[in-house]
Amino acid sequence: MVGVVLVSHSGPLADELVRLARQIGGADVPLAGAGGTDDGGLGTSPDLVSRAIEEVDRGDGVVLIPDLGSSVLTARLMEGPGVVIADVPFVEGTIAAVVSAGSGASLEDVVAAAEEARTFRKL
């Protein structure tokens, strides 16, 4: 199953989105938050992100979903074989990715599902 890592400027924001996505998207998807700095401040920690990637990697690939600013730049440093960034709205893209991953979709399909969230209209 494809893993998903939520990279945020804020630890509590990432953790809360993990909770929401588990509830809506399914409890089985390997999902981890990596928000804030090592000491719990606002910002991004490459160490936390790489630890989260290891935690959710089941061998089928990992999608990184950053929110903004340093999260995006830190996520870009982590890109590599099997680790891709989805350039999507943080909340909506996460839900779409987790639902898709939970259905057993491939890495490519999970990213595509997340990207659909960018054009999905609410009204």
Binding site: T37, G41, L42, G43, T44, S45, P46, D47, G69, S70, L73, T74, R76, L77
Partner: peptide, 15 residues
């Protein structure tokens, strides 16, 4: 710098 700065300048200057 990449590991310790925390903000966007960390990855940028670090890189």
């Amino acid at each position: 710098l990449i590991r310790k700065v925390g903000g966007a300048s960390g990855p940028l200057y670090g890189m």
